[in-house]
């Protein structure tokens, strides 16, 4: 039980390290986007907001980011659930239990380069296909990097997050005592299919739901991977924002800040909606 003094220190640290910088950044961006501050801003104006809100680029970037995020999460969860349920013993006692931590060592940028080397037209898979006689020319190899469907980004995101979910589900399997529930369901005559769909998956997904939502948001906002493997159109939201802030036209900076605030507001709205639907949603002890 933390003492009141320790509690106050923790609160102060949280406010100082998390709240103040984030809120300051938001306020700065808001003031800049409205022309209140900024060296090149000459008057207060909502022009940047209007351009962003009523223009196509912001919403298409949001849509594309959501698509990448949802597809990556769906694939990762499917693979992670399959591995953590089927190979429970290997994960607990075998080499896999240690090896699964290995991919977590790779930063996003390194994983993106790995994907590039693997999947690009002149990459490993393409060369393998060429040497095996499956394709006549390297250029015939399908576009999996810088492609319209974000295949390279999805592939890399899946590589980055799947090990994390395997570890999470594997630990939940133990802490939630799922084996006992499975055994109990079996004694009541449930089939393997029923055990999977009615017992194992609901417990694992319910317990991991907050993490799943947070990772969905995390992938939506990822930057390095879509920057390296994505294309100029469609763009993911972080890349689109940085392009506005850091390209040649300094007068586009207010638009970049307006985009970033609008994105944060959208995400916050979703989080608040989830919270009001279930006030225990973000409490880790709630099931």
């Amino acid at each position: 039980m933390p003492t009141p003094k320790l509690k106050n220190v923790s609160r102060f640290l949280f406010v100082a390290i998390v709240t103040v910088p984030v809120v300051s950044g938001m306020v700065y961006a808001a003031l800049y986007s409205l022309g209140i501050i900024g060296i090149l801003n000459t008057e207060i104006s909502s022009k940047a907001w209007q351009t962003v809100f009523f223009g196509k680029p912001f919403w298409s970037a949001i849509g594309f980011s959501l698509y990448i995020s949802v597809v990556s999460m769906a694939i990762s969860l499917a693979v992670a659930l399959l591995i953590s349920i089927k190979w429970q013993k290997n994960l607990r006692d075998g080499l896999l239990g240690t090896a699964i931590y290995f991919p977590l060592c790779f930063p996003g940028t390194v994983m993106a380069f790995f994907s590039f080397q693997m999947l690009s037209k002149s990459g490993f898979v393409s060369r393998l296909g060429f040497n095996m006689g499956w394709i006549e020319d390297l250029r015939v190899f399908p576009s999996w990097i810088h492609d319209a469907y974000g295949i390279g980004i999805i592939f890399t995101s899946v590589l980055l997050i799947t090990p994390f979910f395997i570890i999470l589900f594997s630990n939940l399997f133990k802490t939630e005592n799922i084996a006992s529930f499975q055994h109990l369901a079996k004694t009541f005559g449930a089939s393997n299919r029923q055990i999977l769909w009615k017992v194992t998956l609901p417990i694992l997904l319910k317990r991991a739901s907050v993490t799943i939502y947070l990772f969905t948001i995390f992938i939506m906002g990822s930057y390095e991977v879509p920057l390296l493997l994505g294309r100029q159109d469609p763009q993911m939201i972080s890349v689109a924002i940085i392009q506005k802030i850091q390209r040649f036209n300094l007068n586009d900076i207010p638009q970049g800040y307006a985009m970033s605030i609008l994105y944060v507001l959208l995400i916050l709205s979703v989080v608040i909606l989830l919270f009001f639907r279930n006030k225990n949603f973000f409490k880790t002890s709630a099931v």
Partner: peptide, 10 residues
Amino acid sequence: QGSAIVQLLM
């Protein structure tokens, strides 16, 4: 380089 320098100085 480029805009990063400008942003920093701004």
